[in-house]
Amino acid sequence: MNQALKRSHEPIFWLLFGAGGMLAALIGAMLVLITAFAVPLGLLPADAFSYANMLAFAQNLFGKAFILAVVALFFWHAVHRIFHSLHDVGIHAGTGARVLCYGTALAGTLLTVWALWTIGF
């Protein structure tokens, strides 16, 4: 009987989903508030997100790690859920849906790494 059981590779995606979900649950809303509304609302100075400030942040190692963690984990969290929701609504497109969903997360992660690399240290 055990021979017929195929091991699922979900643990990889499930852990990324969980990590991203936890990060989004903890600081997701606040991040949106900061990046989109804090300046217009006057909560942060007008030049808070000036090119110089952001460049310095993205050149800092902690800054890089933070940006990568947020962008990549949000992507992996989202695509995992979207993939399962497609299954839920009856689209079991298998490999096709999988590549389309997880592909955007992989591309997003690689592009972020590339951009952070280009920005330099």
Partner: peptide, 17 residues
């Protein structure tokens, strides 16, 4: 929406670069 936000942030990092 989390996916959209990740996309929005990704666009930002790419522009910054």
């Amino acid at each position: 929406f989390v996916w959209l936000y990740a996309l929005e942030l990704l666009a930002g990092v790419l522009c910054l670069a």
